[in-house]
Design a protein around this nucleic acid. Structure first.
Length: 151
DNA sequence: GCCAACGTTGGC
DNA sequence: GCCAACGTTGGC
């Protein structure tokens, strides 16, 4: 089992949006970065756990825990010409983009980016590296355990 | 709104 | 296959 951190802009899907969805489950669609896609497509397994992270907002940070509840399958938004995630180069025979589904495990307190940065144990987290932009990153088991300990 | 970092695109 | 231009991310 692996651990992950998945960013979402709360104006798109917030932790409360997830909590209010049927089955508290959301398709992680709209990812248009190959590295992030490959994590979902090739590495994520049902049962993996992920921190839910609010980005591009007033208080960026971890706000919840989710679990992967469905393996990657072709992202339907790539075929929808009305979607902002539409990709004219994608076909049903050759889909470009994939997504998993995640289910809420629990909301947590806000563990802010500032607080994450304050812990030397977390200094190597991808999310804290300068210039990091990846919306899905693996989390080291030791880092996961440390964060669980302070949540 | 600014801007650094980084990914993608497309001409050559 | 190089690389300049451009677009996006995301914290501040």
């Amino acid at each position: 089992m692996r651990y992950w951190l998945m960013k979402s802009e709360p104006t798109e899907v917030s932790i409360d949006d997830l909590a209010s969805k049927p089955e508290q489950t959301v398709a992680w669609d709209g990812v248009r970065n190959y590295q992030a896609r490959n994590f979902m497509r090739h590495q994520m397994q049902v049962g993996d756990q992920a921190f839910f992270y609010h980005s591009s907002c007033a208080e960026p940070g971890i706000v919840g825990i989710t679990t992967v509840s469905r393996l990657a399958y072709p992202d339907v938004t790539q075929f929808d010409s009305k979607s902002k995630y539409y990709d004219p180069k994608a076909t049903h025979e050759n889909p470009r983009w994939f997504n998993v589904e995640v289910t809420l495990v629990k909301k947590t307190r806000l563990l802010s980016l500032k607080e994450l940065r304050s812990h030397p144990e977390l200094a190597n987290m991808r999310i804290l590296q300068k210039g990091n932009r990846l919306s899905i990153t693996p989390v080291d088991p030791a880092e996961w355990a440390f964060i669980m300990g302070i949540l």
